[in-house]
Structure formats: C-alpha cells, structure tokens
Amino acid sequence: MAIAILIAALAGATVALFFQPRWWFPDAISAHAKAYDAHFLFTLCVIGAIFVFAQGLLTWVILRYRDRGQAPSAHEGNNTLELVWTSATAVVFLGLAFAGQGIWAGIHLDAPAANALRVEVLAKQFAWSYRYPGPDGAFGRVDTRQIDDASGNPFGIDAKDPAGRDDITGAILRVPAGRQVELLLKSRDVIHNFFVRELRLKQDVVPGITIPLRFTADTPGSYEVPCSELCGLGHHQMRSSLVVMAPADFDAWLQEAQQKAAQP
C-alpha cells in the first residue's frame, strides 16, 4: 500500500522536476545544436511516456492486487503477449536508434565546407592552445624540440619553416559567426576532451591522433570550454573559452593578430 504511494510520489516528483526552468541546457547557438534540442525533446517525450506508463502500471498493480484475501490467478505465461511486447519495444527502441542518426551524421559524416576556417587545438595538462594558419592558409611545420610554453610556442612551430612565421597562436578560440570552423584536435600528453555546451558538441582529444571536429556557430558571445575527460589533478581547472564574433569583428581581430605575428 504505502509503497505504491511512495513509488507514485517519487515518479511524480521526477516528472515534476522536468518542469522547473532552472537546470536545463544553455541556449543553442548553432543549427546543429537546435536540431539536437529538437531530437532530445522528441526522445524525452518517448521515454517520458514509457516512464509514466511503467511506473504507473507498477503502482496500479500493487494497489489492485494487494492482499485482500483473493485467490491468486494461475496465469504463468502467454506467448502472444510476449511476442507483442517484445516486438513493440523493439520497434520503439530501434526507431529511436534510427531517428537519432541524423544529428550524429551532422557532426561527423557530412562533408566539410570548402571555406571552412581551420584551427588547430592543442591540449596538454592543464591548458588549451589554438593555432590559426595565417594568411598563407598553411600551418607551419612542427618540431617538438622547439616546444616552449614560456616563450609562447606551445605547438613547437619550427622557426625555419616560412609557412609557420605567420601562424597565430593563442589561449582563446575566436571564430566568426556563420562560417564553418574545422578544429583539428591534438593532445601532447594524456586524453582530454573539448566540450562546448552551447554547441552540443564534445570530442575526446587523443594523443597520437588528430581528430577533426566541425561546427558553425551563429550567435556571437563568449562560451566556456570545460575539459571533460579526466586528465589528472588539474582536470577541473582546464578551462578555455570559445568566443564567437561578428564576421567583421573577427576579421579586424585576425588582421591585428597577423600584424603582431609578422613583427619578429
């Protein structure tokens, strides 16, 4: 008896929590993030319905069949029923799996745009660095022996490679709104993770391989980037920012940064 009430109350409270506005996703800032939210809402409706149905049924069964001296029925199985609920759940679950492929394809499988801005991302215990190729559009060669965090060369850009002279490096990821960005994620030591909540994107950064990650942000603003793969004792402080700028502002920033980079 009491247990039925408790189950119903806790299930109800769980559902009620979904109607508080305080703890929820931050606003979406890209078309993908909006598609994500739509698909999440769809999934939430499906699982919410299953949740309410299942907990409700459990509550009802407990109330209805509590011991009132009745004789228990002798049912011990029904193959038709088994078949029905097996195939019904299979349809719903696999339906969800297929419905969800769209947003996944949007992240990793769609072809990159021709004019994408390429930015190299370097993670190390416990900081992020970003590198833009500069006007020549090419990243300079890297020589690990020339890595020097203190003098501002975390990538180890080879001083002898002309393609590297105009490369721009920094600790903040600045991108123009409305243009596709292709990040090339690299790690120098252990596994880290690049996560932007507002983009609904998260990708491990794995030493030894370069992982591309593409997005197009639409809303200018500054967004926090929390490292999201355990990387050691400074993991919780491995913070960076994504700054989405109006295209004109971005161009102005880029020009200034290039001039600075050109001065020896």
Binding site: F25, Y36, H39, F40, T43, L96, A97, G100, Q101, G102, I103, W104, G106, I107, N193, R197, R200, L201, K202, S228, E229, L230
Partner: peptide, 10 residues
C-alpha cells in the same frame, strides 16, 4: 544514441 551522448558523456 551517439548524437545525444555527445552532450551527456562524462
């Protein structure tokens, strides 16, 4: 769903 896990993982 990998598309959704992308936000919730970790």
């Amino acid at each position: 769903q990998p598309g959704l896990d992308v936000y919730f993982h970790d």
